[in-house]
Structure formats: C-alpha cells, structure tokens
Amino acid sequence: MANIEDLVIRLAHDDTPSRPAPHPVLLGLRWLAAATIYLAVSLWLSGVRPDLMAKLHSPMFDAEIAALALIFIATALSAAVLAFPDLHQMRRTALAPALPVALFIAVLFFAWRADFPPAPLPVHSFECTLSISLFSLLPAAWTFYSMRKYASTHTRWAGSVALLSAFSVGALWLRLHEQTDSIVHVVEWHYLPMLAIGLIGWWLGKAVLKW
C-alpha cells in the first residue's frame, strides 16, 4: 500500500506534458481529409481512366465506388475510435465498417451477375495488388503513426481496420485510374487482397500499437 501511495504522489507531481486527444470524429475527419487530398493529388498526377465520365453513368460502377468510399469513411472513423482505450464509449462507431463491407459484397455480387457476356480479362494480374499496396503505404504509415500517439486497448482490431482504411484509398485510386471492366479481375486482384491486408493488420496492430 505504501508503494501505491508513493507512486500516486510521484505521478501527481510528474510535470511531463500530455496533449489532450481530439474527439475521435474530429480525428477521423482529419485522416479522411488527408487521405482525400492524397487521393486527389495522386489522381491528378497519374491521371484518371479515359472512360471515367462514361463509367460514371453506369449504376454498377457508381454503386461500387460509393460502397468503397463508404468503407473508406467508416474504417477511418472506426480506427479513430479504436485509438482510445474505451473506444470513447462509441462502440457502434467502432463496428461501423461492417455495414459498408456487407453492402460492398452485395454490390460486387450484382456487378458480377450483370457482367454478361463477361468483359475480357486484362493481361496483367498481380500488378494491381502491388500498385494498390504501394499506394497504400503512405496512408497506412500515417494512420499507424497517429494511432500510436493514443492508447488503443484493441490493438489487433485497430491495426486491421487502419490497414483496411489505407487499402481502401489505394483501391479507390486504382479503380478511378485504371481502365478495367472485368469484375472478375477487379474482385480477384483488387478486392480479395483486402482480406489478406486485414489479417496483416491484425498482426501488425499488435506489434505497432503496443504501449
């Protein structure tokens, strides 16, 4: 008991400054803004797909992009909440990505059904996964760096969601940049790797977000 009292006095007189964390919604919005600027600049530099205006008139393409954007928004907010020990007592927000992911899977299913006759497969394959991964490195590093300033008690979950958020920015970029109509290719080389990325984040979160 004497040890505890000594510690309490020592901690109470510790003058190390502690920066108050912003509200998680504000934190999530900051990450979203930074990632959106990164996406816009990258698209400006790399160029958008030549048929983008025509594709935006396709309801399936619009639904796919909208669902992907929803995943991006929901994962950024969820990651922000998961950076707090008690999830800022906003558990529902932490679980927010579940709905957009379900919606996204449904959209992909309908897009696959509507892809008849199937669009020809592009000649490339894994290059898409690699491009998305490289593109996502910066937002992933930024998100992890920011999260480390706080105190996550759900490190695996937080890591998984943070990496999904970064990867969704990469997936958005490639979908708006590359002229590919094959839904089979897109699912196989753009979106399925997201599952693997989620697992990597599960492992990475434990290692990187330890405090």
Partner: peptide
Amino acid sequence: LISIHKARGT
C-alpha cells in the same frame, strides 16, 4: 496506474 497516467490525454 502508470498506464492510466500515460493515457490521460485520451
């Protein structure tokens, strides 16, 4: 207690 002190900013 040390962890609470470290995380007080949250």
